[in-house]
Design a protein around this nucleic acid. Structure first.
Lengths: 341, 341
DNA sequence: ATGCTTGCCGAAATCGATTTCGACACCGAG
DNA sequence: CTCGGTGTCGAAATCGATTTCGGCAAGCAT
């Protein structure tokens, strides 16, 4: 049975209120008593009950990380977020509760808000844009502070932390153009809202800046529910009358898969075809050839998400926190000069 | 302001006790009232306060994942554990709270136990064996159910889930021996208690079974606090009068680093030297050559840890849960036949 | 009419802390 | 001596649920 404030009260012959005030430095307590209380608390090993505290103070000092995506598909990213998230949270004396398999379950989120298990919510990888907006409205109605990660939400009243995908795609495309490529394949993933849109905007921007015509045939909308969509993108593009000489894939794993696909077909990378990934995961650096890609500042994004959320928790009236962080182009050996024929 | 049981009580003209009993199916309530309560609860959007519940029931339905290691060094593993952990926990209506940067801080663990924020604790990557034992004793004293992951603890009264590292090392060594290798380097990491011991035991077992003499010069005790310890292991071994023709590294990342080190030095792998990693991380499959390694069943280990912990929570008198899971040898191209000179 | 179940419901205690507000003693000033 | 302030402390309310125990009424048997 753990030591309660009542136990302290009895051994010290002081009221519970005095004990509480002494421990929380709320004034109204003489230095001598305060000392006695602190001493006794330490000796008896007193630690306030979290539940009782939470109930009385109407806050839990916890934030929820709600993962709105099949967990095994994002656990790699999660791993990169978590150190940042956890570190900042703990510095502010907050804990992190993990909620997975929340995909598509608005009821569970509603209940989470109403039960007041957490003081704020980080919504990670939420579903399609319209659903995300609905979700955020729901949380606003419940007056639950929240922030979306790592996706941009094009609504003025929604807080989010995202990376600059437009600039990322632009950098990759411009890099390929500088290498002499003119026909550049581009893989889309429309379900990844805003991210997909932004990347496509970056792609077209780079083309425009170089005076290259946009060819819709080179842009493939993939469907990640298809288990083998990377191969499909690759095959479709290479079967074109005029196949591209370079391809931007949507993720590093996709590009890595294509790496072995190409090798199996005798297509040399980067001599016959340049390819790029996106995200800069660890694996992308050890493939043969290593992938040219774009790195998102995942740790910083995690930190910023928590910091912003804490601000929203501290001050209800604060304006929405919207952050887009710069990305970094990583040039490696999967992209090379286009050999004109 | 969220809806409380008191609000329900007023709108229904029923006592709080009746409401509670109706919602929790505790009998003593007529079907008609029960129906009325359920209906009203749904309409008003009632959800019980977690804090109040926790206080009254003296449990939180949460388990803590205490990461006792620099978080960025284990986040890859964490990512593979988390899906299993979270899934099983949620199936049992438990939540997962993440506690990082707990390294070496017994006070924080003590406080965690005493504040009763969680019903049980998974201790992940605890420090040296003696400290771990102390930690576990401490938690036992606080009557806090706990289980160690992913390390074996050689004490009858400590629960843990680990992988069979001895068998893993034995499999790797035997594999190399079958390829004709006789001088096999072995990297140790003594600070990783029991794991290191077990792997070394597997290594010597395989040697003994093949009738090969144990040469202490081939066994290097590395120090992971050294930022470049893999290179040191490699250099020390290759500088030997009779260098090994194969080396077992302690981790995949270590082996991957050595891969590029060897290439830079014109040492061909596996023609001049066979090397192996350990763990079977994603990257190990995409290097050139891909790594021969051993895979731990991380997802299953995570599941089993939660299941075992839940058993310990449910029944105090249950015997300690000790599980060692089988590993899997993955033969790839970083190991090859030893060409006798 | 009386006694006894049985079924249904409510009053009140309880979990362990925080916080408000009033009580009391002591002090110096008038 | 009285009054008002100051410094400490405690009684009690409160947070929102659960649980125990007793009460009341209806129904049945005596």
């Amino acid at each position: 049975m753990p030591v309660t404030i009542e136990d302290l009260s009895k051994t010290l012959n002081l009221s519970r209120s005095t004990i509480s005030k002494a421990l929380n430095d709320r004034g109204d307590v003489s230095p001598r008593t305060r000392e006695r209380v602190l001493q006794a608390a330490h000796e008896l090993g007193y630690q306030p009950s979290a539940a009782a505290r939470n109930l009385r103070r109407q806050r839990t000092d916890k934030i929820g990380l709600v993962v709105n995506y099949p967990i095994h598909q994002v656990s790699d990213f999660l791993a990169e977020f978590i150190p940042g998230l956890a570190t900042i949270a703990e510095e502010a004396a907050y804990n992190l509760i993990l909620y997975t398999s929340m995909a598509g379950n608005e009821t569970r989120i509603t209940n989470l808000c109403r039960s007041r298990e957490v003081d704020g919510i980080i919504v990670a990888w939420p579903p399609r844009l319209s659903e995300t907006a609905a979700l955020c409205r729901l949380m606003s109605d419940e007056r639950m502070p929240h922030i979306v990660l790592p996706r941009r939400v094009p609504h003025d009243d929604v807080s989010y932390v995202a990376a600059d995908h437009k600039e990322g795609a632009r950098l990759l495309t411009a890099h390929l153009i500088k290498l002499g490529h003119r026909r550049i394949g581009f893989e889309r993933l429309p379900e990844v809202f805003e991210t997909d849109y932004d990347r496509h905007a970056g792609y077209t921007t780079a083309l425009r800046q170089a005076g290259i015509n946009y060819d819709p045939a080179l842009v493939i909308a993939a469907d990640s529910s298809d288990d083998d969509y990377e191969a499909r993108t690759f095959n479709t593009l290479m079967a074109l009358p005029q196949p591209p000489t370079a391809i931007l894939f949507f993720t590093d794993p996709a590009a890595i898969k294509v790496l072995s696909l190409a090798k199996a077909r005798g297509i040399s990378i980067p001599d016959d075809l340049s390819i790029t990934g996106f995200d800069g995961i660890l694996s992308s650096g050890v493939t043969e050839p290593a992938l040219t890609t774009v790195r998102q500042p995942l740790p910083q994004m995690g930190k910023l998400a928590v910091e912003s959320l804490l601000r929203l928790i501290a001050d209800e009236t604060i304006e929405p926190q919207q952050h887009t962080l710069p990305v970094e182009l990583i040039v490696r050996r999967s992209t090379g000069l286009h050999i004109r024929t």
